[in-house]
Design a protein around this nucleic acid. Structure first.
Length: 486
DNA sequence: GCTGCCGGGAG
DNA sequence: CTCCCGGCAGC
């Protein structure tokens, strides 16, 4: 980290100054026009036109949002963080915390820190890929004088894990901060893509998620943000950014799944093409992206419409080690998918039991099954015969359970507990547990007949009409009393 | 007749 | 959404 690297000369001739470590360009080949940045947000390489063919450097190296890199800005080496890596244009948008500005750089002008270089090479070695350039880079990498892993290698490991995870789950486009949307020529695409991804994820088969809202305000509700490396979030931004939107990942199960490192036990990650009737399985992101791009998107990489769209057409799945021991590329359309199919979002064993007994700490049970979520009970004004419990089983999907009589938990208001309530009667355990809303509408006493009048004293009787202001709201409004439940 | 509260309307 | 009330039905 922060070690001396090769710095492109500012003279503009593209030569490299001496240094300990080569630039990516030097490693992977390709020639880069030198950056000419003029303060603020600068883009020296517009999306359309003016792009020299060699911009499309043959390196398929992927930078992950949040990744720490080195760029040259105003002739100075700056530590910065990747915000978005545009593979098509081979541009990397980075944020320089020091200067608090976003700049775009050619891929060739972005340098990894030494540790990351090392990590990347290890990574490429581990990736099974027929990509010739990777092979090339691999061979090169061996000859590079990369320092041994340092003691913080573990930390970097986690960082890489986070990055990999991030890269799996979000499109680079989506990571552009809203503040730059006006200047980036594809905001519409971004939002559309987001919608698309939302649709896909509704079907439960996408890992698309993860949006880092950058330095923008906290008010962008929908897009989840990247669970970036701790360093990133803490160094570049305030801690308030860290957990904001974290829970919006549509699939907590995938979120929990902690990147390649843990997978080596029994589960391995594969990438499945989501293109209709395809379902191709590949082992590497690069591979699946290339597959999508070439096979489905027509390899029109420079078409605006298809830019980075491939991100939305694959998903990560987990495979049991033994099950996937087959070939790297297996044409198995209808096969595996174990972990991507909508999971039972609430443990069927837990929920009904908890609902059966109102006294059980529903909240705690739920918080165990859905960590980080919350449960909410509408209490007082729920008189409309519909006290509802919202159980966000997934950050996006709120399971709403409503029933007419006897909410199992209006804590403290009712000394008299309501009658026992059988949830499972109406939610048979054999019912297929899909990710749809579980809505239990328990039997109204008789549909059409009134609720039997309760024996409990009501506010009216207790306080009298003269103290009407002490009544519960429901009583005041001539609704079913919420304070003295039957 | 008193009371509880459903259904519906106003804002 | 909050607030109110007509009117039904149980007591």
């Amino acid at each position: 980290m922060g070690a001396r690297v090769c710095v492109p000369s500012t003279v503009g001739d593209g030569t490299l100054m001496t240094g300990h470590y080569p630039t990516l360009q030097a490693v992977f080949g390709g020639e880069a026009p030198l950056p000419s940045c003029e303060g603020g947000y600068c883009k020296e390489c517009p999306e359309e036109g003016a792009r020299a063919p060699e911009c499309q450097a043959p390196n398929r190296y992927k930078l992950y949002p949040g990744q720490k890199v080195l760029v040259t800005h105003k002739g100075r080496e700056c530590v910065s963080f990747v915000e978005q890596h545009n593979h098509v244009d081979d541009e990397v948008k980075v944020f320089i915390p020091e200067q608090k500005l976003y700049i775009s750089r050619k891929m060739e002008d972005v340098r990894l820190t030494d540790v990351q270089m090392h990590q990347h090479f290890e990574h490429s070695l581990s990736i099974v890929s027929s990509e010739p350039t990777e092979v090339a880079s691999r061979s090169v990498s061996r000859s590079i004088d990369v320092p041994k892993r340092r003691s913080d290698a573990v930390e970097m490991d986690e960082m890489m894990a986070a990055m990999v995870l991030t890269s799996l789950s979000c499109s680079p486009l989506l990571q552009s901060p809203p503040s730059t949307e006006s200047s980036v020529p594809a905001p519409q695409t971004a939002s559309d893509s987001w919608k698309e991804s939302g649709d896909v994820s509704d079907s439960g088969s996408s890992t698309t998620s993860g949006h880092w809202s950058g330095s923008s305000s906290i008010s962008t509700p929908s897009p989840p943000h990247l669970e970036a490396s701790p360093k990133y979030s803490s160094e570049a931004f305030g801690p308030s950014q860290v957990d904001e939107g974290f829970e919006t990942d549509p699939d907590p199960f995938l979120l929990d799944e902690p990147a390649p490192r843990k997978r080596k036990n029994s589960v391995k990650a594969m990438y499945k093409c989501l293109w209709p009737n395809c379902g191709k399985l590949l082992r590497s992101i690069v591979g699946i992206k290339r597959h999508v791009k070439t096979q489905h998107l027509g390899d029109a990489t420079d078409s605006d419409q298809h830019k980075r769209e491939e991100d939305f057409y694959y998903t990560e799945i987990q495979m049991k080690d033994e099950a996937e021991s087959e070939s790297v590329v297996s044409q198995t359309p209808a096969v595996p998918v174990p972990s991507v199919i909508p999971q039972p979002l609430v443990n069927p064993e837990i929920l009904p039991l908890d609902l059966l007994s109102p006294e059980t700490p529903l909240a705690s049970a739920l918080s165990q099954s859905a960590p980080g979520s919350f449960w909410h009970i509408q209490a007082d004004h729920a008189y409309q015969a519909m006290p509802s419990i919202q159980i966000p089983v997934s950050p996006h999907i709120f399971t709403s359970i409503s029933w007419a009589a006897s909410p199992p938990s209006i804590p403290s208001l009712s000394p008299i507990r309501s009658r026992s309530f059988s949830f499972s009667d109406h939610q048979p355990q054999t019912a297929p547990l899909k990710s749809q809303l579980i809505v239990a509408s328990p039997p109204r006493a008789h549909s059409g007949t009134r609720k039997v009048r309760g024996e409990a004293k009501k506010c009216r009787k207790v306080y009298g009409i003269e103290h009407r202001n002490q009544w519960c709201t429901a009583c005041r409004w001539k609704k079913a009393c919420q304070r003295f439940l039957d």
